[in-house]
């Protein structure tokens, strides 16, 4: 069997000279080939240009006063914004992760096929993932800031972001749970364990890498979010004293710096930090997901 596969591949393989000959006979194909490669080069080139530009312009601007613990209009320090970002990530994850995982468990382990509730849940999740962040911001402002009277606060921003990342956490957890082989569950049931025990002792532990990679991706989204936060968490530059006080995250800090136009150099510096953070989060998430596929 394997022998035939190899020989078929050998037949399909063409040498460069053969390819050239083919293209000279079909100039249209050559043109299409060139266009296709060109598009890919543009895509990767644009990304490379963006990353290189940010690094070159930003790294010289990473001065120590950008990392001072106190924010003043003079130093425009980004450390307080970084601490606020961490607070924001924690608040959003504490809410979104349990709900997201619970929801995915219900969909994968409990729900029966063709259940009407499942259809509605899928529809609403899809809707949530299509809503732009400014709508979340508007909703968060109207619901948490005005109606529940939280005011501009980390808590209000975190709640808004929790709803925003919920579909992402749900979808990645669902995929991770579906990837757990049924034989695990059958084995567990066969040994007399209940459904609950099977889920917590077997299914969830084997799905941890997939869930983790999704959670890290959602951290990336929180770190980069601006529009949903300006009117919920506010724009105060200092470290938020608690969950009920206002504070800007790193991305909001960068938007304000760039938009005021007075601190373009400082905005470059924040851009480097944001970009490196996103690169790291993406890389780690990809690494975990890659390991999952191999294992």
């Amino acid at each position: 069997m394997e022998q035939t596969v190899i020989s078929v591949n050998a037949i399909n393989r063409t040498s460069t000279a053969q390819k050239m000959k083919n293209y000279s006979r079909h100039p249209g194909s050559l043109l299409v080939f060139i266009l296709t490669v060109l598009a890919a080069v543009i895509t990767v080139g644009a990304l490379a240009a963006l990353i290189i530009w940010v690094l070159i312009k930003g790294i010289p601007n990473l001065t120590p006063d950008m990392f001072s613990l106190t924010y003043t209009t003079d130093n425009q320090s980004m450390l307080p914004a970084m601490i606020n970002t961490v607070q924001m990530v924690l608040v959003a994850l504490v809410i979104a992760v349990p709900f997201g995982i619970g929801s995915a468990i219900y969909l994968v382990e409990y729900a029966k096929k063709g259940n009407r509730l499942v259809t509605i849940i899928r529809l609403t999740t899809e809707t949530l993932s299509g809503i732009p962040s400014i709508i979340y911001g508007l909703f968060g402002y109207l619901c948490f800031n005005v109606a529940i009277k939280m005011g501009y606060s980390i808590l209000s921003g975190g709640l808004t972001l929790a709803i925003m990342i919920l579909p992402l956490v749900m979808r990645t957890t669902e995929e991770a749970l579906l990837a757990v082989p049924d034989s695990y569950r059958e084995g567990s049931f066969g040994l007399g364990a209940g459904k609950c025990r099977t889920i917590f002792k077997l299914v969830l532990p084997s799905a941890v890498p997939g869930i983790l990679s999704g959670v890290i991706l959602s951290i990336g989204r929180i770190v980069g979010e601006t529009a949903a936060l300006i009117f919920t968490a506010g724009t105060v530059g200092d470290i938020a004293a608690g969950l009920t006080s206002s504070g800007r995250t790193l991305a909001v800090h960068m938007y304000l710096l760039a938009n005021e136009g007075l601190y373009i150099n400082k905005a470059y510096a924040v851009a480097v930090v944001l970009l490196v953070l996103v690169l790291l989060l993406n890389g780690v998430s990809g690494l975990i997901a890659g390991k999952l596929k191999k294992g």
Binding site: P98, F99, G100, I101, G102, S103, I105, Y106, L107, E109, Y110, A111, L117, I120, I121, T124, T125, T127, L128, I131, I135, Y136, L138, F139, L142, C143, A147, I163, L166, P167, M170, G194, K195, C196, I199
Partner: peptide, 27 residues
């Protein structure tokens, strides 16, 4: 315990429905 957990998972699953309804309502 099984019943309670199933209910909890169900409540979690309904969270996205509630969220969409809330967003529609407030807007």
């Amino acid at each position: 315990l099984e019943k309670v957990m199933k209910l909890l998972f169900l409540i979690a699953a309904c969270f996205s429905i509630i969220a969409v309804l809330l967003i529609c309502f407030f807007l």
